[in-house]
Design a protein around this nucleic acid. Structure first.
Length: 387
DNA sequence: CAGATCGTTTTT
DNA sequence: CATGAAAAACGATCTG
C-alpha cells in the first residue's frame, strides 16, 4: 500500500465532531469578544494601527526595543503584551487608570478570534452531514517532506489548554459509539534521529535503556527542564550563538551552551559536517534518498534541520504503511496524522491489545532504516472524560 | 477591486 | 546586514 492511498482512506473517514460543544463555544466566545471590545472602548485588537493608537499614543506606554516586528515596528504580540502587563501592574500611574486589564483583554480577544475562526467556526462550516469533519492532506505540502493539512488545518488544533479560549477544543472531537480516540506519537523522534546519525554514545544508551531523555539531560547539565528543552530545540533548528543567548536569558547562558555542546559533542560535530557537505552540494539527502535543495547554497544552515525534520517525516510515513497493512481494520481505524503522531479510532473493548500492537508495529523502524537507536512511541487518550 | 503583505495565533 | 526549522489561516492594511 502506498501513502497516497492511505491518506485518501483517512481523508474519507474524517473524525466525528460534537456539534453541541462547538455551538456552545461559538456562542460563548462571540459573547466574550463583544464584551472585551466594549471594555477596550471599541479599539480593535486585531488592528495594529488601533493598538498603536491605544497603547503608545493614548496610554503613553513605551515602545519596547526588544519587541519589534520584522519590519521594525513596535510589536503587540503576546510576548510584548506580557511585558506591557508587567509595566501596568508595577506602575501606580497606570494601575489607578481606566486601563487596568487592557493587556489581558487584548490577549483574550485575539485568543478567541483564532480559536473561533480557525477551529470552532471552521468545524461547524466544514462538518459533513454525517457529523464527521474531513481535512485535505497535501503529501507534498512542505519543502522538507512533511505533509501539510488544509480546510481545516487539523495539524494546528490547540493542545488542551489552560487558556479559556481553547480549554474545550479536544471535547469538540469524539469517537463513534463504543470507540475511543487514541493518539500515538514518536517521542523525541528528531533527537533519536540525530543520535542515530551522529552515533552519540550517551544518548544512544539513554534511548536503548528506555530512560527519560530530559531526565538524563537535566541531571547531566544541572539545569531546569524548560531551559533544556528551549536550548535543545533551538540547537536542532540551527540557532546561532546570539539567538541562543537571547532566548536563554540571564543565568550564564554561555556556560550552559558549552555544557550542552559537550554533552552532545558528536551531534555538534555531525551537524557541522552536514552543513559543510550541504554547502558544497547545494542539497541534503535523507535516508530514503529524497533530497531537499537549499534555497540559497551560500547559507546551508537549513540543512541539518531538514535532515531531521524531513528524515523523521519519512520514518512516520513508512510507519503508516506498516500500520495500514498490519493493523488497520474496522475496529481500529487510522483517522489523522499530525507530523509525528497518528490518531486512531479504536473499539473500546479491544483497546489494550491494539495499543500493544500499534506500538510494536509503529516503532519497528529498522524494517526500512538501519538503526541501533530505538524509535519508541507513546500513546495518549483523547477526551479523558470519555467514561 | 484584486492580490500581496503584514501581524498574529496555533501546531510539531 | 542578520540569521530559530516547517507549516495554515485569519483580518487589517498596503499596492497597483
Amino acid at each position: 500500500m502506498q501513502n497516497i492511498n492511505i491518506f485518501r482512506v483517512m481523508e474519507g473517514r474524517g473524525v466525528r465532531i460534537n456539534k453541541e460543544v462547538v455551538d456552545q463555544e461559538i456562542a460563548y466566545g462571540e459573547g466574550r469578544m463583544n464584551q472585551l471590545r466594549r471594555e477596550l472602548n471599541g479599539y480593535n485588537p486585531l488592528s495594529h494601527k488601533d493598538l498603536k493608537t491605544l497603547l503608545i499614543d493614548e496610554m503613553k506606554l513605551p515602545i519596547l526595543p526588544d519587541r519589534l516586528t520584522p519590519a521594525g515596528k513596535p510589536s503587540f504580540d503576546k510576548n510584548a503584551m506580557k511585558d506591557y502587563e508587567a509595566i501596568l501592574e508595577n506602575n501606580p500611574a497606570y494601575a489607578n487608570g481606566p486601563w487596568g486589564s487592557v493587556a489581558s483583554n487584548i490577549l483574550e480577544y485575539r485568543g478567541w478570534h483564532i480559536t473561533l475562526s480557525l477551529c470552532y467556526k471552521k468545524f461547524s462550516d466544514l462538518v459533513g452531514p454525517d457529523g464527521r469533519l474531513r481535512c485535505d492532506y497535501w503529501l507534498h505540502g512542505t519543502k522538507t517532506g512533511r505533509t501539510s493539512a488544509h480546510d481545516p488545518n487539523l495539524q494546528q488544533i490547540p493542545k488542551d489548554g489552560n487558556k479559556i479560549w481553547n480549554r474545550n477544543i479536544k471535547r469538540a472531537f469524539e469517537a463513534d459509539e463504543g470507540y475511543v480516540l487514541l493518539q500515538v506519537d514518536f517521542s523525541q523522534g528528531e533527537m533519536r534521529l540525530a543520535t542515530r546519525y551522529a552515533k552519540q554514545p550517551n544518548l544512544t544508551e539513554t534511548f536503548q535503556w528506555n530512560r527519560d531523555m530530559w531526565g538524563d539531560m537535566i541531571a547531566a547539565l544541572n539545569r531546569p527542564k524548560a531551559q533544556c528543552k528551549t536550548l535543545t530545540y533551538a540547537k536542532m533548528y540551527g540557532a546561532q550563538r546570539n539567538k541562543l543567548r537571547l532566548i536563554l536569558g540571564g543565568d550564564d547562558p554561555d556556560q550552559f551552551i558549552t555544557d550542552w555542546e559537550a554533552y552532545h559533542d558528536r551531534i555538534v560535530a555531525f551537524s557541522n559536517k552536514v552543513y559543510e557537505v550541504a554547502k558544497k552540494r547545494g542539497y541534503v539527502r535523507y535516508w530514503t534518498g529524497r533530497v531537499r535543495h537549499l534555497p540559497d547554497r551560500r547559507d546551508a544552515r537549513l540543512a541539518f534541520n531538514s535532515l531531521l525534520q524531513g528524515g523523521l517525516a519519512e520514518i512516520v510515513k513508512s510507519a503508516m504503511i506498516r500500520l495500514y497493512n498490519e493493523v488497520d481494520n474496522p475496529e481500529c481505524r487510522m483517522l489523522l496524522m499530525v507530523h509525528d503522531s497518528v490518531i486512531f479510532e479504536i473499539k473500546r473493548e479491544y483497546l489494550e491489545q491494539y495499543i500493544t500492537q500499534i506500538k510494536q508495529v509503529m516503532s519497528r523502524v529498522e524494517d526500512e532504516f538501519e538503526t541501533n537507536v530505538p524509535f519508541d512511541v507513546e500513546e495518549e487518550m483523547w477526551g479523558l472524560d470519555a467514561a
